[in-house]
Design a protein around this nucleic acid. Sequence first.
DNA 1: TTCCAGACTTGGAAAAATGTTA
DNA 2: TAACATTTTTCCAAGTCTGGAA
Length: 524
Amino acid sequence: MLYDGRPVELTAEQEEVASMFAIMKETDYMKKPTFLKNFWEGFKEVLGRSHVIKGLDKCDFSPIYDHLMAERDKKKALTKEEKAAIKVQKDAAEAKYKHALVDGRQEQVGNFRVEPPSLFRGRGEHPKMGKIKQRVYPRDITINIGRDAPIPEHPYPGQRWKEVRHDNTVTWLAYWRDTVNPKEYKYVWLGATSSFKAESDLLKYEKARKLKDYIDDIRKNYKRDWGSSDVRRKQMGVAVYFLDKLALRAGHEKDDDEADTVGCCTLKVENVECVPPNHIKFDFLGKDSIRYENTVDVEVPVYKAVEAFTKVDARGKRKGLRDMVFDTFDATDLNKELKALMDGLSVKVFRTYNASITLDRLLAEMEEAEDAYAGKTVDAKKADYDRANKEVAILCNHQRAVPKTHETSMAKVTEKLNAMREEIKALEEEHEAALRAKGKGKNPDAIASKLSKKMTALERAELQAAVKEDLKTVALGTSKINYMDPRITIAWCKRNEVPIEKVFNKSLLNKFHWAMDVESGFRF
DNA sequence: TTCCAGACTTGGAAAAATGTTA
DNA sequence: TAACATTTTTCCAAGTCTGGAA
């Protein structure tokens, strides 16, 4: 790399850290002062005290960047055969790490690779972004194996695993402490197809289904609490209403060394606005610093209550913008309270319940809206499914960044649509002409059939384009993977003769193997 | 009774794989 | 058959929640 225009020699260790930074050249992190500051602090330490490099502003990492790009291009330029050969080798080397023997069963391992050193990429305004995530060695890692299992080897002679445990009360295979957030642990788990994961998945959905039997009472309860003179009761009543209506996350307290995000219990005065006569406007950063923006109609008592909660606290002290709306309890308290309403109930169950029951309802409504629904084309039914999926994703606020190529690819699609419309116009004229010619020219019927084919194609393409535009900021995957009971989907497929592969990809088919034999009449 | 370590689920972005088109 | 678009997989960050120590 260059410093102040002159080449600088770096040790291998220094070069590794410089490369972590260089590779991020095109990312937005480069514009963030926190990122730059944290990186410089880490880099400075690696450079040592008397190093010629004295600051980031005179550093030029582009030689490293160019080199890394050249390597990437080289890899890309390999022939198909060379790439295939490399893949075979890689797969063979990894094969033995991909499975574990658990209680006599072969189970897939999820993440078998230790996270490599890198720069921490926190989301949103994370105070630790840019810090160096150190290399993790066997001496940092605790492994969990059967009492009689041989201790697995590792590639660092002279080192030992930090600890070898035989704990059959947990499902992790290994863990280490994160070097950026030393309070946190990184685990190696079994894959999504494993018995442990499948079992807890089923349990999760069964619990959410059970909420169905309790929800009427819970609603009665919280409505009563809106009128309570006990501020805590009243606040909890409103909070549970939000969970029920909006499927918000719990929102636990966060430290100053984390991004400032909130959930239901940590909503601040600045995050809610009461808009007369009965609207509440939510605007806050939730998990992953994804913005939640939603204006909802609420019952008048809720409106009045929230208005009061944003003004003064339980002791009558005036609140500021950064004070919490619910100042009388936190997420743990709320969960404790929920346990009293239903065994095993916690905040997140509302999200699962809400997502699943919404999917179930929407699909059923679509089926009921048309006679002979099952007779629709598979494509049309799949489009219906995706629409329902989209509503669930919006409910859960699963957003994604607009794909970088969206704008250009949309322009292309529009161009194509216009070309198709032109063609149709030309065909229509040709058809008219043929009709006028009365058998002397081309066969009008042939043109008509061509025309109708084109029209269908156009309709399809228009629908596709509309869907694409519609979904540019919505992520359907998360709800499919984590929130919608797969039995709803599978039963729907069975009822309507939609091949399940149309809706679930290979991974999801595997993940949800436990749900495959559900009967077609299943309702959530 | 509170605190927080520990374990597990959920989340979007990026990379890789696959499909489509020129 | 490369170039581009789309889908799938991987990565690892960021949540939730419980139980047991203090």
